[in-house]
Write a protein that binds this DNA or RNA. Sequence first.
DNA 1: TTGTATGCGTTATCAA
DNA 2: TTGATAACGCATACAA
Lengths: 339, 339
Amino acid sequence: MADDVTLGEVARKSGVSMAAASRALNSKDGVRPEVRDRVRLVAEALGYRPNRAARNLAGGRSSVVGFVVGSGELRLDSYGASLVQSMARAADAHDEGLMLLMDSKEPNVAVQNLIGDGLIDGVIVSAVAIGERWVEELLDARVPTVLVGEHPRRSDVSVVNVENCESSAQIVGHLLDTGCRSVATVTGPMTRVDASLRLQGYRLAHERRGLEIDERMIFHSDFDRRSGYELTETVVACGADGVFGSNDEMSLGLMRGFGERGIKMPDDIAIAGFDGTSETEQGVPALTTVLQPFQEIANTAIETLLRLMEDSDPPPLEQLVIPEIFFGETTRNPQPGEG
Amino acid sequence: MADDVTLGEVARKSGVSMAAASRALNSKDGVRPEVRDRVRLVAEALGYRPNRAARNLAGGRSSVVGFVVGSGELRLDSYGASLVQSMARAADAHDEGLMLLMDSKEPNVAVQNLIGDGLIDGVIVSAVAIGERWVEELLDARVPTVLVGEHPRRSDVSVVNVENCESSAQIVGHLLDTGCRSVATVTGPMTRVDASLRLQGYRLAHERRGLEIDERMIFHSDFDRRSGYELTETVVACGADGVFGSNDEMSLGLMRGFGERGIKMPDDIAIAGFDGTSETEQGVPALTTVLQPFQEIANTAIETLLRLMEDSDPPPLEQLVIPEIFFGETTRNPQPGEG
DNA sequence: TTGTATGCGTTATCAA
DNA sequence: TTGATAACGCATACAA
């Protein structure tokens, strides 16, 4: 079962030269369709697999992309786990290998190690949790780079974003349109662009309905579960009958707090979140939330990176992916005639 | 910043041949220490990075290991996410790249694709969630393979296990020794070796204390959160004042159920779990649980794989990693004078 | 359209 | 202890 079949053998058994065989298999022109098909048939029959090292060495491309994630991103936030999973699938679908790179090391060292040895053609960076220096180093080293998630500085990078503002406006609107008279929000760190955009969406939803915003209904927090939980009392005390937790982790923390106090959702307080990781739908009650289209994000990121490396056909600098809303059990259903 | 410095340049600037330079840098003997040091100095100064593709092609090793995870393992279970995170760190520490492989495809196709092309030296398999055919295919293809987690068949594979039975006995013992008169357990699928060992530990703890086990206190379930949650009523009804949920996901489901019913932990019911992923400690209340030593597991797995590939110095077939117990807020603290 | 020949950067083999 | 030199498997410029 060892894989000793080389291009040379395929060529020989096809009765052509290595060059012709190579061209045939790589869909280059300059080869008769007849020959092309024959070579491919033989390759298939022999179970030929091009050696990636050799191909890399000769051709320059390795067909492996790196995926940089924050050191705590996987464990601490199911957003990261979902993204990695989808990215692995996307890479697979595009016949690229996916190397996992952690940002633990000093960025310059890591970049040198993992790019300099030619193993990787380019990288995708989960930007939200990564220090800016990583991105700086990658760009300085002229490594093809695609960011997933907004990044404060450097607008000269290709980035794939989920639409944050309008989606937030939609889901806050849903709260307002289904009986909530006073909707609070719990935000993430205002240094993060996504957090700030979601807050903006919260404002937008009110604006559109001509509703005044009570600034005391806006609570700033940390995007993690505990911080949401710890805000329970405060949120309850402010008298809101609806909350937009601007990510699911915080929302789940709040839900736990509500549950412990016997506060019913959505009747006493309706709540909606943002992210849509596994627990959202599996949870009890299921959280109404903005579903990140993880698979689409991942596919777009991979395809963007591939285009970036083709150097012809440069991809757009920013691409927006539109999420959908999942209507769970923590909000009321839309009233007929509304919406 | 591009990395054009090759072995040839290092050799030339060191005044030696490429062969000598190669030997010097790879710590092979047959080179004077004096020369060795000089070459290394030059290499360092030039920022030389050996090209992995070339090294792989010439030498046979790629310094990349694959990590096979179940297709849903990352999203659905934080165990998987924690393991991936630790594995990335471990690979990094051993100067190996880590390629993420998902088991989505047909195993034989995937194995052929990712091994046959010579990109990977060996694989680590998260065995608990992987179909057996994957392992079969890998072994048949003579790919160096290390399993993480027990696997029902094929005892001829290197496997790194967490100790399941004794640890479970310890934590159940903790429940029994801190005031619980009747401890129930919720198990995972009995087809899984780890689930069955943890149940065994539950029995062992009782045995050691001369306690009879009420078989109606043993509930079989699915290792996921929802299944735990759905058992809440049943567990409450059986009159237990303590529960050993044999993984954290189920335990967290139960805790949510208890919380909703106003059941206080640990006073009304004490509860302990198994795994120790992030939410365990961050959760409210913090769950007493058996902490999987993820980093140690990962390091052991990587080192085992490396030894496996050296072909000298074969590693032991099974290695046991001993977990510790995290005492959270869902159980009472040990009474002074108890053990 | 085809085949020949060379080079990618490294390790390994052998003579010196 | 060294240094030429031949692989490694593939892609590609160039000649046919």
